[in-house]
Design a protein around this nucleic acid. Structure first.
Length: 224
DNA sequence: GCGACAG
DNA sequence: ATCTTGTCGC
């Protein structure tokens, strides 16, 4: 798919935060799922020694969840790990992988947060603004915000709030398993984001998109 | 000031 | 993220 040239990447914390502040106003915090929804893409990155990394994108048929496209990119981490600036670490490689895709996915599912971020501009928002595509963030552990424990059944959820505003949702994707943390990335509202998260978790806690991308990035890093 | 802190 | 054995359960 076509990916616009992001230009140069920041090298300091101050520069990176300035980039987030500059792009944040471009985030569209609402929207319905595209109809018909044809394809969904999952993105993930695996790390190896010496800052080596492998980014992977897997595109699935939204109905059958069968893989229809994939792309990978190996490289080095472009930024140190700083909570809140996580996106700068993986974005270059993820964009590179996306550029190699034959198709343009209808929605991008990111590993991490969107609006549930100290400056309301997590990886999912960043990726959404740069690609122009609808995105959502699904994280495995809490980062910002407070919440009550949701019910234990699949579909149960509780609002994730921070600074007096709802920034996401703690969602139980399977009965009796730890919940995931869903937040809006770009062009999709929270209801749509959670509906998609449930649709992609027919068997496991994490979305099929994320699981496929995770395994692919791992395999690539291992040289498979 | 101190601890916590997506992956 | 990654480093790692065994173990409980379907």
């Amino acid at each position: 798919m076509d990916i616009p040239d992001p230009g140069t990447w920041p090298s300091t914390v101050a520069e990176a935060e300035a980039v987030q502040d500059r792009l944040r106003p471009l985030v569209v915090r609402e929207g319905e799922l595209p109809a018909p929804l044809r394809t969904v893409a999952g993105l993930d990155v695996s790390y190896g020694p010496d800052d080596r990394l492998a980014a992977a994108v897997v595109v699935l048929d939204a109905d059958t969840l069968a893989p229809v496209d994939r792309a990978t990119r190996v490289g080095r981490a472009a930024f140190g790990y700083v909570p809140g600036l996580f996106a700068f670490r993986e974005l270059p490689a993820l964009l590179g992988a996306l550029a190699d895709l034959r198709t343009t996915p209808d929605v991008l599912l990111c590993d991490g947060y969107g609006l549930a971020h100290p400056r309301r501009f997590g990886l999912a928002c960043h990726l959404g603004v740069l690609t122009g595509l609808p995105t959502i963030g699904i994280a495995k552990t809490p980062f910002v915000g407070r919440y009550e424990e949701p019910g234990r059944r699949r579909g149960d959820w509780a609002p994730l709030t921070d600074g007096g505003e709802v920034v996401g949702r703690v969602l139980r994707t399977r009965d009796g398993v730890r919940p995931v943390y869903v937040s809006v990335g770009h062009r999709l509202g929270l209801d749509a984001a959670c509906a998609l998260a449930l649709r992609l978790t027919p068997a496991y806690r994490l979305p099929e998109t994320t699981r496929r991308a995770d395994r692919l990035s791992r395999d690539v890093l291992a040289g498979v």
